[in-house]
């Protein structure tokens, strides 16, 4: 957090979307994506859903924290800046979270973009995905190789 000349706190970041993860977190806190799970069928949804599409009103949605460990399902490297301002080259794809039996979309960082491969073990990190036109950091989530 920055302060201006009036000693007012200025927020220098904003979230890519609300409700996806807790931010900011303490250094010793494990980052986690916030999902929910239908108590009737057990299916997990990220991002969270208001209603289970399979159980309709018979299911109750319970919020859960996803395990941070994932396995890459598919990945690619994009060589053009995305229309939404993600700077190329960047890697992204889908990650399966074995503990929660759910697949999530994610950017891949922490290694050369072309180094990622299906089957690779990765883990969640919360960090800026870009700087917006006002100079604010946009905070999103990504996956990096398990060292």
């Amino acid at each position: 957090m920055e302060k201006n000349s009036l000693n007012e706190t200025i927020q220098t970041w904003s979230l890519v979307e609300e409700g996806l993860f807790e931010y900011p977190i303490a250094d010793n806190q494990v980052p986690a994506l916030l999902a929910n799970r239908c108590t009737k069928c057990g299916k997990t949804f990220f991002p969270k859903r208001s209603l289970c599409p399979y159980c309709f009103e018979k299911g109750e949605m319970k919020e859960i924290r996803l395990d941070r460990r994932g396995v890459i399902y598919a990945c690619t490297v994009v060589h053009r800046n995305s229309p939404t301002g993600i700077v190329a080259p960047y890697a992204y794809g889908y990650v399966d979270i074995p503990v929660n039996k759910v697949r999530v979309f994610g950017l891949f960082v922490g290694s050369d973009p072309s180094s990622f491969t299906p089957g690779q073990e990765v883990q969640l990190v919360i960090e800026p995905i870009k700087i917006d036109h006002q100079g604010k950091q946009i905070i999103g989530y990504k996956f990096k190789p398990v060292s």
Binding site: R80, T84, I86, P118, I129
Partner: peptide, 30 residues
């Protein structure tokens, strides 16, 4: 020239950098 089609950022994945060629690149890989 060089601009990629911007179909809006209503979807989370799009905000995170998803693009149509990328989606099909993933399919090609699999």
């Amino acid at each position: 020239k060089g601009a990629m089609l911007d179909v809006g950022a209503a979807e989370l994945e799009t905000k995170l950098g998803d693009v149509f060629p990328g989606q099909f690149a993933l399919i090609a890989q699999k």
